Simulated assay, not measured.
Amino acid sequence: MATQAVHKEQPLLSVQDLKIRIQMENGVMNAVDGVDFNIYKGKTLGLVGESGCGKSLTSRSIISINPKECETSGTITYNSDSELALHGMNLLSLKPTGKQIRSIRGRKISMIFQEPMTAFSPMYTIGNQIMEAIRIHQTKNKKEAKKIALEMLSKVGISDQAKRFDQYPHEFSGGMRQRAMISMALSCNPEILIADEPTTALDVTIQAQVLELMKSLQAEFGMAILLVTHDLGIIAEMCDEVAVMYLGRIVEQAPMREIFNNPKHPYTKGLLKSMPRLGGNKSKRLDSIEGSVPMPINMPPMCGFYDRCKDRIEGVCNQQAVPKTAISDQHMVRCFLYTDQREGEAQ
């Protein structure tokens, strides 16, 4: 049974059976429950799903910045291209505040956060905060660090860099703050960039500019990107492969075009039908997925999408855990509609 798209090259980052548990007053929340995916050099993997599906917790676990309440297990294997000492390292085995993970975080694996206004400190200038990452990971020389910071501000399209270097985050517009965040993330030329909803707070024009900027910088630096979003339009624009996440699990994974042209899981189909389309009937209401994502507390072994699914099989989907099924070498789905249980139910 294939669970990943088949690639000839070794993945730069491999996530296997990632689980994140959070102890709540009324039980244990399985926020992330057995997630698997690979990230390849120069490629973009899109992690898509509604809010509350565990996307951000999954991405933040890679660089060990989740809250202390999160009990994390599984393996996140990092195969560094540049340093043999890091090749094949399980990042989850490292101490979150230790020297090894800090040598990777920001230098080899960087992250663009959802809201740069909260990610930047209001007490320090933009230039000071970009320089901090450079001085930690590249050079202690202030003049050299400033030169690199100014070059990065120029690369992300911020004009009058010398003036902007000495300004504070509140003096930047939303689009400029996001560009400054990208410049800080890329200042150390990382191998992997994690982008958590990088365009959520931006208008459509600035959003397009930021996405184009990320694509051009990826082509220049050859980095891999993990793009976390709920916007399928961004997925279509940016990604080579897509992992659809629901209630802490990846329910479907395939190349981008396969997901859009041949979706299998009812949740994936629902997401696609909710998208507005050019040339569509303007008087027709967009489809929606009824209900909301439940809280995964003390969840029994069953399909998490059962209560919202129009194609559910009574006595099957609500009675047992859903196995992974290989539609092809590059297409995996987690749904009883494509297993032997479905055939038995029909008979």
Rank of each mutant, 00 (worst) to 15 (best):
G174Q: 05
E71S: 12
H87L: 11
Q218D: 01
M299I: 09
I134R: 02
I192L: 02
P67Q: 04
V244Y: 08
Y306I: 13
A346H: 09
R177L: 06
L211R: 04
V333I: 07
Q4S: 10
M111T: 03
K108D: 15
N30S: 13
S61Y: 03
V35Q: 03
V333M: 01
L57N: 15
C303V: 03
P296L: 00
I327T: 05
I126L: 02
T139Y: 04
C309H: 02
M332V: 05
F260Q: 00
Y78K: 06
L153M: 15
I20F: 06
G49L: 09
T3A: 06
I234M: 11
R334V: 12
L47H: 00
E115F: 07
S56I: 14
G270R: 07
T268Q: 00
K41S: 14
A31Q: 03
F172V: 03
L57C: 11
M24H: 11
G34T: 09
E290V: 14
S159E: 15
K8E: 15
R135V: 07
F120A: 01
M214L: 15
K143R: 14
E151W: 08
M245A: 04
E197G: 05
N79H: 13
P276K: 12
L84I: 13
E343N: 12
G27H: 02
K41A: 14
A133L: 08
D307H: 12
A31Y: 05
L227D: 01
Y40S: 10
D203C: 13
K108Q: 14
F336K: 08
P266I: 07
G127V: 08
P169M: 00
L84H: 09
H7L: 09
A85E: 15
K282T: 11
E9H: 08
M223L: 15
L286W: 13
R334G: 10
L247R: 03
S328W: 10
N66F: 05
E171I: 00
D36W: 13
D17M: 08
I158V: 11
N66K: 10
T118A: 02
D340W: 05
V242H: 07
H265C: 01
H230C: 12
F305S: 07
H87S: 08
G344I: 12
D311R: 13
Y168T: 10
I39N: 08
T200K: 13
I327V: 13
L91Y: 00
T339Y: 06
P266E: 10
M238W: 09
Q23T: 15
R135N: 05
I136Y: 12
S159R: 15
Q347S: 12
M181F: 00
I63H: 03
R179L: 01
S82I: 14
Q129M: 03
G157C: 10
S328G: 08
A321D: 14
V322C: 07
I76L: 03
I109Q: 04
H230N: 13
V35D: 00
I62V: 15
I297D: 00
V316T: 09
M214C: 09
L286D: 05
A243N: 08
A346Q: 13
I65A: 06
S64F: 04
I259V: 03
I234H: 11
K282N: 12
M181H: 00
G157A: 07
E252H: 09
G248R: 04
E50M: 11
P11N: 02
S80E: 01
S288K: 11
E151Y: 07
P96D: 00
L286T: 02
E144D: 09
P266G: 03
N298K: 05
V242R: 14
S328A: 13
P96A: 02
V35I: 11
T118S: 02
I109G: 01
